[in-house]
């Protein structure tokens, strides 16, 4: 009886750890930044921006990029797919392109240079980690009371 109990407990624990591990993988959030900017690769290749790029994720337009523009979208998981509607030059026709990417787990923010990506550049050329600028904060902390209306301005009582 006791052995059975222990086995059930270990099994329950294993299931919970398993679910947590799955959540770690499928729930990892990333912010993807799309750049339609000029990029000069280390080998000297220059990728010039397109006139206009519309970025669609799950059928929804998330960014409309002109030359030297940046857009962004929040995504979940390591697989990312998007649809790009590209207008190469001012009077040219729109061209559609579907892109599927594997996103590195360790990166919170990822910059994708779309001209480099669309011209078949290597991953380390079109993909870069987004590192937010460090903003010097003065003071200890902002006082932002947030929550339900349960909190009343009644002191600490």
């Amino acid at each position: 009886m006791k052995v059975r109990k222990i086995v059930f407990r270990i099994l329950a624990l294993a299931i919970l750890i398993g679910i947590a591990a799955v959540m770690f993988v499928i729930g990892r959030g990333h912010t993807i930044y799309f750049d339609n900017k000029t990029l000069e690769a280390e080998d000297g290749t220059v990728y010039k921006p397109y006139y206009k790029i519309d970025v669609l994720v799950n059928g929804e337009k998330v960014a409309k990029l002109g030359e030297e523009d940046r857009g962004m979208v929040s995504t979940m998981g390591q697989k990312f797919s998007m649809e790009l509607h590209i207008t190469p030059k001012k009077d040219s026709k729109k061209v559609g392109s579907a892109v599927k990417l594997e996103i590195p787990y360790n990166m919170d923010g990822i910059i994708l240079n779309l001209p480099a990506l669309l011209n078949g550049a290597a991953e380390d050329v079109y993909m870069d980690e987004f590192i937010p600028a460090v903003v010097e904060e003065t003071g200890d902390e902002e006082e932002v009371p947030a929550g339900d209306e349960f909190e009343m301005p009644m002191g600490d009582a």
Binding site: A20, V22, M23, F24, G27, R28, G29, S74, M76
Partner: peptide
Amino acid sequence: WQIVGVPGMVL
């Protein structure tokens, strides 16, 4: 840990 959405809640 940047686990978002429903998986973040489950975690």
